[in-house]
């Protein structure tokens, strides 16, 4: 079989199956062209690095939402891993690689704790992770009472600037490589199918032989892992650790909605939410260029989200009726 034709048919199949993400990419490209026209010096690298933490958060939130849950504690977990990384890197600057790996493991562990609590308490996900939001935020304060600590140079270097041409910012490459390395093999694996399965229909998944509880815990662990990447990205971009959770919960939920992930579970992917984050980011940049106050651009962003979710919901409604 002709390889090119094979690839083309794969893309065609994907585009048919995921028109929402394709539409988002088109919107992003149009917005980018518009931004360039507005200000020709604008590069993707600033957007990519500013969006990196929240893009990881969106990817993590997407996984747990696909599995039928939701993680309200994601911002706190990011803050926790952010301060752990910053304080460890300040103490052991020479051990930066082990520290980064350790932080990722802590993220996965924290996620596992969330998942185990959801499973054994039998309390709805939203309530458990609401409670854990406080717990992990408190833990972050225990690690660092006030903003402090430091980063390590290579973390900043791999996420700043561009690779050769201007359209390929390093932060974007890091994001796509990391998410791709984890998600693409996972998506095809039994665990990946199980994550979609329990989100799609719990009972059906159980009857199909899926270990529902184990899969749920694994999904939370993955979310925690991605949250820790978000925390590391925060360490890289700010150079310090901040124990107060940022607005990443809101943004991650906004991104998965924009990205076509069904809050009911079972549907969607990671690419859509990531593109969603970039779209929100570029809109904010545009508003700033146009001289809008930050407060006012928050209003505009919120209004855009309200309109998007209303139109999206309306289209779903129409499709169901047709």
């Amino acid at each position: 079989m002709n390889g090119l034709a094979g690839a083309r048919s794969f893309v065609a199949r994907w585009a048919r199956g995921d028109t929402w993400t394709v539409g988002l990419i088109v919107i992003f490209v149009l917005l980018f062209i518009f931004t360039k026209a507005l200000r020709s010096t604008y590069g993707l690298d600033a957007l990519a690095i500013a969006s990196l933490p929240v893009a990881f958060a969106a990817a993590g939130q997407a996984i747990v939402v696909i599995s039928g849950g939701i993680d309200l504690s994601i911002g706190s977990v990011m803050a926790l891993t952010n301060v752990i990384a910053a304080s460890l890197l300040a103490t052991y600057p020479e051990l930066s690689v082990p520290v980064v790996i350790l932080v990722m493991l802590i993220g996965a562990l924290v996620g596992t704790v969330n998942g185990v609590l959801v499973v054994i308490s039998r309390v709805p996900d939203i309530v458990v992770t609401l409670a854990m939001l406080f717990v992990w935020a408190g833990a972050a304060l225990l690690v660092l009472g006030t903003p402090g600590g430091s980063s390590t140079p290579w973390l900043r270097e791999i996420t700043t600037g561009t690779l050769g041409i201007e359209l390929v910012p390093r932060a974007l490459v890091v994001l796509l490589v990391v998410v791709g390395l984890v998600w693409i093999p996972l998506r095809r694996s039994r665990l990946g199918l199980s994550i979609y399965a329990i989100g799609s229909n719990r009972l059906g998944a159980f009857r199909s032989g899926v270990h529902v509880e184990g899969t749920k815990i694994a999904a939370y662990a993955l979310t925690g892992f991605f949250a820790s990447l978000g925390g590391l990205a925060l360490t890289a971009s700010t150079g310090i650790g901040t124990p107060i959770p940022g607005p990443y919960l809101l943004l991650s939920v906004a991104a998965i909605v924009l990205g076509g992930v069904s809050l009911a579970g079972g549907r969607g992917g990671l690419l859509g939410p990531i593109v969603g984050i970039y779209i929100l980011g570029i809109i904010r940049a545009d508003l700033t260029f146009m001289g809008m106050e930050p407060a006012f651009s928050t209003v505009i962003q919120g209004v855009i989200m309200v309109i998007v979710v209303m139109v999206g919901a309306y289209l779903t409604l129409r499709r169901r009726e047709a």
Binding site: L193, Y196, A197, G199, S200, N201, A205, R207, S208, G266
Partner: peptide
């Protein structure tokens, strides 16, 4: 009720 998962 078939145990087929609709989203797969």
């Amino acid at each position: 009720e078939p145990a087929i998962l609709p989203d797969l």
